[in-house]
Every structure is written in C-alpha cells, then in structure tokens.
C-alpha cells in the first residue's frame, strides 16, 4: 500500500471528480455540476478552466463575471498551492497515458525503439498557437480539438467518437514516444507548467539519504525536473513537475517527500537576503 498510496489518492480524485460530474447530469446531484471546462460547486461557487478562458478572451468574447471568477479561483489555486497538479490529480487523460506508459515499460518498447527527438518545449509552442488561432478564428481553438475536454465532457454527457481521441493518445504514447502527449505536446500542461511555477506544494529531495538507485528518474514522466537527484538537496522547482509523487512512492530511502515548508523557508530567506 505504501508503494502506491499517492497513486490511489490520485486515482481517487480523478475518478471521484468524474463520478460527481456524471452523477450531476445523470441523477441530478448538485455537488459538482458541469465539467472541467466550467462547473458549479454546491450550486454556488463557480469554477472554470483558466486556459479555456484565456482562449475565449483571445477570440474576443465578452464574458460574464461568473466564468471569470471561476477561472480566477482555479488559477489562484494552482498558482499558489497545486502547481501543475491538475495534470496528475485531475486530468482524465492522465489515466490513459499512465496505462500506455506502464504498458510501454512492461513491454520494454523504449529499449527496442530508436529514440525520436522531440523537444519538451513543443507544448509551449502549441499553447501559443492555440491562443493565436483563437484570435484568428474567433473561437477557442484548443477547446474544439482537446482530447481532455472530449474525455471529461464525454463521461458526463456522452462520448460519441471521442473514444477515438483517447485511442489516438494511447497509441501515440505507447508507440511513438514515451510520455508523448502529457510530457511534450499538451498545451494545457504547458499552461499549468507556467502558471504553477511558483506554487508552494513541492517535492523535496534529500541528497544525504539518496543511494543513487535512480528509480525516481526511471518512473518520472518529466525527468528533467529531477536533475538534482543525488547531487544536492532541495525542492523540485521546475514548473513542469506535476506533483504526481511517483518518485516519492518509488524511493526506498525516504530521500523524496512532499514539502510545503522548504519552499516557504526558501522564499523567506530570499526576501531576507534582498532586505
């Protein structure tokens, strides 16, 4: 259990949120209505996807206050607390790509496959392109092709051919490139990487306890963020870290754990230094 405690928690939030959305449409539950694009919590608190809102603003939409407040709430939550946690704790596509990458490891596909070079920065380019195309076409461009939206909307309101999009992502991750969608292409992941760069909830590494087994790097979907492993202690500060805690689970030496304080301390130190 200890080895999968965070995995269970992540699946619990991911699936729990989807069940609430499904129940809202199918049985009229009023805990969490709508979907991940925009929802209503307990029939009072509006919540909204800040990246969808940004695209709509680029498209030139005049928006009501509800959705703006909702997007601000979510943006604040991820900016201050969660970081890029949306990707591994909420996004339904995470389950598809985790399955593909688990299968990839089991089958050893990465060992036989010739590495295709792809830049991690592709997602930022796609993000910028989504905003520019939204402005040019006069509607939220990524929302019309987003497999994430197709998945959570599909589960609450009917999937249609949306299953095809999930299969594409699955095959893409399984056969084209490791973590191809979430780690390289997805503009929403890029958006949250930037938004959550300075969040307080961080993985912290203790280099003293590390035995350099490198299991964490093997399992990490964003390996670059763990560059300090075994070299120096400190928080994982790169925005690309999704706080998925796979590195924490896999570590046999307690060299990795979540920490809010270390980040806080560091900021306090920095402000002191400046003063």
């Amino acid at each position: 259990m200890r080895k999968i405690r965070y995995l269970l928690m992540r699946r619990f939030t991911q699936i729990g949120i989807l069940i609430l959305y499904f129940g809202a449409n199918a049985y009229g539950w009023t805990i969490l209505q709508g979907n991940l694009s925009a929802s209503l919590l307990f029939e009072t608190v509006p919540l909204a996807d800040p990246f969808a809102l940004l695209q709509m603003l680029f498209a030139g939409a005049v928006l009501a206050t509800d959705v703006i407040v909702g997007a601000l709430i979510m943006a604040l939550f991820y900016a201050v607390i969660g970081g890029r946690a949306f990707c591994s704790w909420v996004c339904p596509i995470n389950m598809v790509t985790d399955l593909a990458n688990w299968l990839r490891r089991k089958l050893g596909i990465s060992d036989v496959q010739k590495r295709v070079y792809m830049s991690r920065n592709v997602r930022y380019w796609v993000m910028v392109m989504a905003l520019l195309l939204s402005a040019a076409m006069g509607l939220a461009a990524f929302e019309l092709i987003s497999p994430i939206a197709m998945a959570h909307r599909g589960i609450a309101f009917g999937m249609g051919f949306g299953v095809g999009a999930l299969v594409i992502i699955f095959l893409f991750d399984l056969f084209v490139h490791e973590n191809a969608w979430c780690g390289y292409v997805c503009p929403l992941g890029g958006f949250y990487s930037i938004l959550g760069k300075f969040s307080l909830f961080r993985v912290k590494h203790d280099a003293e306890a590390c035995t350099l087994c490198m299991k964490c790097k093997e399992v990490c979907p964003e390996k670059e963020v763990l560059f300090m492993i075994g070299k120096n202690s400190g928080s994982v500060l790169m925005g690309a870290c999704t706080n998925c805690a796979r590195c924490i689970e896999v570590c046999d030496d307690d060299a990795l754990d979540f920490s809010i304080r270390s980040q806080l301390e560091k900021t306090i130190e920095q402000t002191k230094e400046k003063a």
Partner: peptide
C-alpha cells in the same frame, strides 16, 4: 466564441 462547453444548461 462565448460558450465554454460546460453543459450546465443541459443539466
């Protein structure tokens, strides 16, 4: 432009 596709009207 304006619809965020949340489905609240549907519900």
């Amino acid at each position: 432009k304006t619809c965020i596709k949340c489905g609240l009207c549907v519900e």
